[in-house]
Design a protein around this nucleic acid. Structure first.
Lengths: 255, 255
DNA sequence: GCAGGTGCCGTACGTCGTACCGGCCGCCGG
DNA sequence: CCGGCGGCCGGTACGACGTACGGCACCTGC
């Protein structure tokens, strides 16, 4: 496989897939498969067992179908993942916006965090170029709408959203790492640390890195391991929102 | 390969590798290989051609050595990448801190951005648990030291650093995507967009997603494609620093 | 001079994505 | 009513990948 991406030759093919341009076959008892069925199954696998468990053979198997049959509907794995991502965006809530901008933006951040918690594989899959599917468009539009009127330029509004979503993704990634480390090693975060700590001390010259040691253990103590990422998310989110407030207030004053 | 990570059984082995616990062989003309030579070559490959091009066969070849010889020094690919990461941290500058905390923190952010620009593969490799090597420790200690005295608790100081580094990584990732999209498709970001845009318009109902369209094109126009990520980095960094200022000022006032 | 160990590596296995091609079956034009 | 055709399905096979295993060559310490 090497990369998740290849020449990807044909934008038309990929986009058509994302936007489901395909007349349903006129066949009486339609085909056994469909892009939607494939995507649904693939998302289930990735949710339950991670991106690494998502192989084309596995998808075929889960559908009770030969591996290669999947390729009738999907040009390749990269494209499948792209559709999975867009589909996941599609299931996000988009309630009518309410409250002040900060409340709205905070809400958006939490919704995105929840998305990543439900579908942790997105954190590993999204490394590549955004997907440009219909649901991403809808999401982007929805989220922008919540903050277009805060008195910043369009470009700044875009940057604000990028900043917040970037923070969410970072925090989600950190949290996700803890989770799948636990799954893969069978140890909790705390146990993992305890098994590594003695070895570390062997190598560390005593008294080296005093600041790191003090702060590190302080951080470790405070939030009992699993709570760490959550704290980082909350703290960071408030800082980011504070920072945005500063510009927003500046602009309001200069008007 | 499936995952970059496996059971990883033995923490001792991995840590010993990171910290280079190994007496140099007494052999007259020392062995042809060494962990350092391997790591250096591997970093060169990853820098030049990306993580996907980094295969064990390729590393052996670049060293003029059989594939399996590499395994004499390194337990597996995951561990090799871990050492590569720690090594990269080791080459970061750590000048004496100067200026106020904001200046120092900004400096740290820019140094980290530069690191990721020099070694974009780190953005894809670091998905996994932090590496706990000596250079990461030194880096963590150095960066913390620059901000321990800003009047926040240890836990908050840690969260501040996490926030800033998280932003840097997000921005670097966005920038890196643009770069390697260009390498892989041979098109600039602008060209790519132009080749996809007409197809997109085919699918989009005219008038749908007005906000997204307006803001999206505004953002696209303003910064000529390649400049987009850079703007996002700068804007976000200032917002983050502003946000941190707010708490710092609060604490200073309450003292 | 010899035994043991260290560094090296050829071969082979299991996994992956997927190209290719051949068989199947329901529909439609004659 | 029937013959062919087009969409669907999937078996086989290829070329990557990481790496387990076992053997070979040479140096070193006795």
């Amino acid at each position: 496989m090497a990369s998740e991406r290849k020449a990807t030759a044909d934008p038309a093919r990929s986009l058509a897939l994302l936007w489901r341009t395909r007349e349903p076959t006129s066949r009486s008892a339609g085909p056994a498969l469909s892009v939607d069925r494939i995507v649904r199954v693939a998302i289930d696998i990735a949710d339950a067992e991670g991106l690494d468990a998502l192989t084309m053979r596995r998808v075929g198997e889960a559908l009770g179908v030969g591996t290669m049959s999947v390729y009738t509907y999907v040009p390749g794995k990269a494209e499948l993942v792209a559709v999975m991502i867009d589909t996941a965006y599609g299931e996000m809530p988009r309630p009518a916006v309410e409250g002040d901008w900060r409340t709205r933006l905070e809400r958006i951040a939490r919704d995105n965090l929840a998305l990543y918690q439900r579908h942790p594989w997105m954190l590993r899959a999204e490394t590549t170029r955004p997907v440009l599917g219909p649901h991403l468009m809808a999401k982007y539009d929805y989220e922008l709408s919540a903050i277009v009127d805060i008195g910043l330029t369009d470009v700044e509004v875009d940057a604000v959203l990028t900043l917040v979503l970037g923070h969410v993704k970072s925090a989600a990634r950190a949290a996700s790492e803890v989770v799948d480390l636990e799954r893969e090693t069978g140890m909790t975060d705390g146990q993992w640390w305890q098994s590594h700590a003695p070895w570390l001390e062997t190598f560390l010259k005593p008294g080296a890195y005093p600041t790191a040691s003090r702060v590190g253990t302080a951080a470790g103590q405070q939030h009992g391991a699993a709570y760490g990422p959550e704290y980082a998310f909350e703290f960071g989110l408030q800082r980011v929102l504070d920072g945005i407030s500063v510009v927003v207030a500046e602009r309001a004053a200069n008007r």
